[in-house]
Write a protein that binds this DNA or RNA. Structure first.
Lengths: 143, 143
DNA sequence: CTCACAGTTTAGAATGGTTCTAATTCGTTG
DNA sequence: CAACGAATTAGAACCATTCTAAACTGTGAG
């Protein structure tokens, strides 16, 4: 009776709680997606990769819903959108302060902890503008 | 006979020279696009904005050619592609070391000189990967 | 100067990720 | 459990970008 295995019920319960806190109605699809996204540690997904992944668990969620959900989760602060590729959008379950390595050829994102990296010397933005956030993308390639 | 005005002939000559140096055949379209792009100082364009701009000078260049040319110029090192927006690609005539402010709502890019900004603490990339370049995007919004 | 050919341009079709639409289904509250 | 607003969905629509195949144009040879 120590820490329970990650049974479906358990995972769902956590997902439902998370959704409720975020003010999102816990529908079957959202619970399922939240389960996949937040079960393991930090993850980076695209709409399509998530759609495929969920499909493989046997649950049916339309691509439109995946897109809707990804955006809702982002608005709710559960996800963060990462723009590194002109071709597709990535979503990151790590919403804290951090940056990324990006392997373009493979579409692979790797977190860089926020504490380790520092950007100095950012000039004050032109009048009338204020800084929203600073994104650093370290583009890397296979040797 | 001091510095000449920027007459068409003059501009074209410069553009042609630039193209030749880059190993690109100076066609009417490329000369025209290079003229628009490199005449004034640093510029940020999208395929569509450049297409519109050139169209207004009365020259006819197809959108496909604008895309082709933008990519050829980029490969030739005359332009640099800037990825800040999931919706469209920007191209920057400033190919030197520098970063950007980005006003998402307006699709506006503003250069930050490379000397003023410094990124410290970038960890070594995982084995097998090497750093290609580090992009910093300071996302700003209108007050 | 002219020819011929590789390199370019082009209109329009095709692509691919994302968003929209309108109808159906589902959660929640009373 | 009824009923209403919210969510889901299939498929159409969108839009930036790329592709295709045909027409055109620099350029270097002769």
């Amino acid at each position: 009776m120590a820490k329970a295995l990650r049974e479906p019920k358990d995972t769902s319960a956590q997902a439902i709680a998370r959704l409720r806190e975020a003010g999102l109605r816990p529908t079957r699809q959202r619970v399922e997606l939240a389960g996949v996204l937040f079960q393991s540690g930090d993850r980076h997904v695209t709409a399509e990769s998530l759609h495929d992944e969920v499909a493989q668990t046997g649950v049916k969620v339309s691509l439109a819903t995946v897109y809707n959900t990804l955006h809702q989760f982002t608005e709710a602060g559960l996800l963060r959108q990462v723009i590194v590729d002109a071709a597709r959008s990535y979503f990151d379950t790590n919403t804290g302060d951090h940056q990324h390595f990006f392997v373009e050829k493979e579409g692979l994102l790797i977190d860089i902890p926020g504490e380790s990296i520092a950007v100095a010397g950012v000039p004050a933005p032109p009048a009338g503008l204020s800084v929203d956030r600073v994104d650093v993308v370290v583009r890397v390639r296979r040797n």
